[in-house]
């Protein structure tokens, strides 16, 4: 099978700078067993996050007492309406937001206490490909590689290999990123995240805005990452077919609360049983978010207008 990334780093959680008292320092094989069998890839326990939006307005409860557990190698999808708390949840795990209450652990490392250790294990792709647009893809990616302690040469080689796999030829990698299409920029964003070999990959609507072929390329690549590289994925998406194809389990986030979770098959059976609706993910979405996909799109447009 084709190897897309160099297995430079063992797929172990590295030693935290301040190891937790109850967790032994990771040591070779013993820890492999510990990480494989006991420690979840991501543990979210009773997490709440509020935002103050104005002095006279009530704080917005973006994430409300959410708990979930993702096992190593799993692809976990989070579905929900716009404003439902999906991106906030991703940002919390990314260490870009602080928790109001609750606890988040990545491979046993607390995101607040062991922030640096967590940062080395994760990477994220968001809906908008954020780069220095005047720089070339390679310049952007080598910059990102250095930030993650990856050699520039390794970073360059991995970037070229990953982007070739995603359908972007090497000759296009030296021109400014602003000259690339939105879809190609998003593929570069995906390469940036994968190049650092994250053990937990946070994908926040990674295929939004991509054409069908590009979307398929990215989805296939995510599957390969999981199968070949033991990567755990937390994915948010509005594409229900994508969720069904990629996700081992799905959680529905509505108004900041995790209202249900299960495998796609379990959720479809549940919605048929409890709500008498067709056994589709769209039925699941509508039943648990209280709105249709069309309503969600309208809400999105309204939000854009504001």
């Amino acid at each position: 099978m084709t190897t897309l990334l160099d297995p430079r780093e063992p797929r172990l959680a590295p030693e935290p700078e301040s190891p937790r008292e109850h967790q032994p320092k990771p040591k070779a094989g013993m820890v492999l067993a510990v990480t494989d069998t006991v420690v979840p890839a991501l543990l979210v326990e009773h997490v709440t996050k509020r935002f103050v939006v104005g002095r006279r307005k009530k704080p917005v409860l973006a994430v409300n007492d959410v708990s979930l557990r993702i096992e190593r190698g799993e692809v976990y999808g989070v579905l929900g309406a716009n404003g439902g708390g999906k991106s906030t949840l991703i940002r919390l795990v990314s260490t870009l937001l602080t928790l109001d209450s609750g606890r988040v652990e990545v491979f046993g490392f607390d995101i607040e206490r062991d922030e640096m250790a967590v940062k080395r294990l994760i990477n994220r792709v968001s809906v908008d490909a954020a780069f220095f647009k005047k720089l070339s893809p390679l310049e952007n990616l080598v910059y990102a590689a250095r930030l993650y302690g990856v050699d520039a040469g390794h970073g360059r080689r991995d970037s070229i290999r990953i982007l070739a796999r995603l359908g972007i030829a090497e000759k296009r990698l030296s021109r400014p990123l602003e000259q690339m299409s939105r879809g190609m920029q998003q593929k570069v964003a995906i390469a940036r995240a994968l190049m650092t070999s994250p053990t937990l990959l946070l994908l926040d609507e990674p295929t939004t805005g991509l054409d069908p072929r590009s979307k398929l390329d990215v989805q296939t690549f995510i599957e390969e990452m999981r199968d070949d590289h033991d990567t755990t994925v937390l994915l948010t998406t509005h594409d229900l077919a994508e969720a069904e194809r990629l996700c081992d389990r799905i959680g529905i986030l509505n108004d900041g609360r995790l209202v249900t979770e299960g495998t796609p098959t379990e959720l479809k059976a549940q919605v048929a049983r409890e709500h008498g609706r067709p056994r589709t993910l769209e039925s699941v979405f509508m039943s648990y978010t209280g709105r249709s996909l069309d309503e969600d799109a309208e809400a999105d447009e309204d939000a854009d207008d504001e």
């Binding site: 870009l96 080395r120 994220r124 954020a130 647009k133 930030l147 993650y148």
Partner: peptide, 14 residues
């Protein structure tokens, strides 16, 4: 302005 702030801040860099 470039939109890269979050990526820099989440990188494992002091």
């Amino acid at each position: 302005w470039e939109g890269t702030l979050e990526y820099t801040m989440m990188a494992p860099v002091r």
